[in-house]
């Protein structure tokens, strides 16, 4: 009979926890909707689960009840199962198409939806990484001419 807890406004910490949970959930939702890489989509689903966990623990604190904590433990369990099965599916999809792209499976879409067509992307202007160089020291050993010519790989 913890009716009283329902009538009391949550403490500031509980409210802040709920807000953090809501932000994490919304971020995960945006990622799932927008990203195309299958693995990143699953990472975003896990982010949504994290938001749910934070909310559940906040409510558990508010009510002084173990329900939220127990539920989060089951969320962890189901997330582990889901990740195992989902990653196996991702690996199978990669083995068949050679891509981690959700649009590679767009033949499964509804018949009235337009086809996703990739446009040409501009080249990436990558700056080659600068690695530190050691100052040369010591005496350079004499190179074996035969070994240099015969050897195909270093």
């Amino acid at each position: 009979m913890n009716l009283l807890a329902n009538t009391v406004a949550p403490s500031a910490l509980v409210i802040d926890g709920l807000v953090v949970g809501a932000i994490l959930f919304a971020l995960g939702l945006v990622g799932i909707l927008a990203r195309r890489n299958l693995i990143v989509m699953f990472l975003c689903a896990e982010l949504m689960l994290q938001g749910i966990s934070v909310s559940l623990v906040s409510w558990s604190r508010h009510h002084g009840d173990w329900g939220g904590h127990v539920l989060v433990i089951f969320v962890l369990t189901v997330a582990a199962c889901e990740a195992a099965v989902a990653l196996v599916f991702v690996l199978q999809a990669f083995a068949r198409t050679g891509r981690l792209d959700s649009a590679a499976w767009q033949s499964l879409r509804e018949s009235n939806l337009p086809r996703t067509i990739d446009r040409e992307l501009p080249a990436i202007d990558t700056v080659p990484p600068k690695f530190p160089k050691l100052a040369p020291a010591g005496v350079e050993p004499a190179a074996d001419e035969d070994a240099l010519h015969e050897r195909e790989h270093v």
Partner: peptide
């Protein structure tokens, strides 16, 4: 497919 996203504006609005 890592350099583009499907409907980023709509996804952000939904979030």
């Amino acid at each position: 497919y890592d350099r583009v996203s499907t409907e980023p504006l709509l996804a952000a609005v939904a979030g």
